[in-house]
Each structure stands twice: as structure tokens, then as C-alpha cells.
């Protein structure tokens, strides 16, 4: 407690004594000492309430030694994608929006879930149809890459929705997440369709379980490979 605190306390005590003295003199029937004690009580109550309010904003603190019993935990791929707006991709890789030309810079990870789904859709269409990225983007804009209007609209296509679909969208708890899931359903269907087509083309059966239906590429690879 420094000098100014002591002076403040003495000043406060003087004020209290003064108020109590005046009250005892001016108001008949009131005891000056009772007024003083009551004022001290009121002030103590106010101060106590302040302390209790301060306590409500404090958490119990303790040293956190971690979980030495458990093995080091590594992330699951995709966990760095947290939401639709403004997240940065994980592990310090800076996200990058599209450049002015409308082309995504190679090797950069888009910032939002929607943009990453869009990038994956462009890639899937490009690999399936053997077309350019611009052509794939055109199909996404037109919404012709899927039969699901919700998935198409999620990626920016202007396709009509039925009344019941609109109502369901309004009532959905997290509509953006639900739309993203629909877009992924459509994208997976597109990939599996490509896989089946590739497998039939190479005389085999689609092997969706391990995502290995690009067998024809491997077959062609082994044939084309030169030997020294």
C-alpha cells in the first residue's frame, strides 16, 4: 500500500466520520456511531460485491502437464478445413484467392471449403472428361456437371430449385454445411462413375474400396515403359 492509498483511506474515513457526525446532529433520534457503522457496512457490502463479481470472471488455473500417457496425435487430412469463411489452410500454408484472370495459382490451397470443393470439382471433371480447366469451370458455372441442383447451386450455378427444396433449405440447421455435403456427394458420384467407366474400359471391375479404378492408366504405363 503506497502513500496515496493511505491518504485515500484516511480521507474516506474522515468523510464517513463527518457524514455520521452531521447525521447525528441534524437528524434527531439518530445515533452518530450507528450511522457510521451502517455506512461502513454499506461500503463493505459494495466492495464485497465487487470482489464476488470479479471472481465470476476468473477460471481456476493449474499447470497443464499434457497427456504423457497418450501417443503424439497427428491430424486427420481435411481437419484443417474449418468453415466456409476466412479460414487459413493448416500448417501455415497461406491461402490464396483467385487471381484477376480467374485462374487459380498452381500449388496454392484455396481459403474456404467452398473454394476447395470447387477446385476438386474442376480437377475431377478435367480428369474425367480430359478437358481443360476452363471448360470444367464453364460446366460448373452452367451446373451441367451434376443432376443435383443443390450441389450445382452451391458452386455458383443458377439452376432453379423446387419449392419443397427451398423450404427444406430454410429449415435446415446449418444450410451451408448441408449444401457442401451435397456437393461432395455429387462429386463422389462423379468420381465413382469415372472409375467404373475406366474399369470397364480396361476389362476389369470397379474397385471403389481402395480408389484404385485407374487401372487402365497403370496397364498403359507398363506397356509404354521402355526397357534399357
Amino acid at each position: 500500500m503506497n502513500e496515496s492509498d493511505v491518504l485515500t483511506a484516511l480521507g474516506g474515513l474522515g468523510v464517513l466520520l463527518g457524514i455520521a457526525g452531521f447525521a447525528g446532529v441534524l437528524i434527531p433520534g439518530l445515533n452518530a456511531s450507528f450511522v457510521f457503522v451502517a455506512l461502513v457496512g454499506v461500503l463493505a457490502g459494495v466492495q464485497g460485491a465487487r470482489y464476488l463479481i470479479r471472481r465470476s470472471g476468473l477460471d481456476y488455473a493449474a499447470t497443464d502437464p499434457g497427456d504423457p500417457e497418450r501417443r503424439y496425435q497427428v491430424p486427420v487430412p481435411g481437419d484443417e478445413i474449418r468453415g466456409h469463411d476466412g479460414y487459413r489452410s493448416g500448417r501455415g500454408r497461406a491461402g490464396r484467392r483467385r487471381s484477376g484472370s480467374g485462374r487459380r495459382r498452381r500449388g496454392r490451397v484455396p481459403r474456404t471449403l467452398r473454394r476447395r470443393i470447387e477446385a476438386a470439382t474442376v480437377e475431377t471433371i478435367r480428369l474425367r472428361e480430359h478437358c481443360s480447366a476452363a471448360e470444367a469451370e464453364r460446366r460448373i458455372e452452367a451446373g451441367t456437371w451434376t443432376d443435383d441442383p443443390i450441389a450445382a447451386r452451391y458452386l455458383g450455378a443458377d439452376v432453379p430449385l423446387s419449392l419443397s427444396t427451398r423450404v427444406r433449405r430454410l429449415l435446415a440447421r446449418s444450410p451451408r454445411q448441408a449444401q457442401a455435403a451435397r456437393a461432395l456427394d455429387a462429386l463422389e458420384a462423379l468420381r465413382n462413375e469415372s472409375a467404373e467407366r475406366a474399369a470397364i474400359g480396361s476389362g476389369g471391375t470397379a474397385d471403389r474400396a481402395d480408389g484404385d479404378a485407374d487401372a487402365e492408366a497403370d496397364g498403359a504405363n507398363s506397356v509404354a515403359e521402355g526397357r534399357t
Binding site: G78, D79, I81, R82, A181, L184
Partner: peptide, 8 residues
């Protein structure tokens, strides 16, 4: 959703 996207 994020994990499915990473798989794709």
C-alpha cells in the same frame, strides 16, 4: 465434410 474432401 473436410475429411471427405481431403480423400477426394
Amino acid at each position: 465434410v473436410g475429411r471427405r474432401l481431403a480423400r477426394l
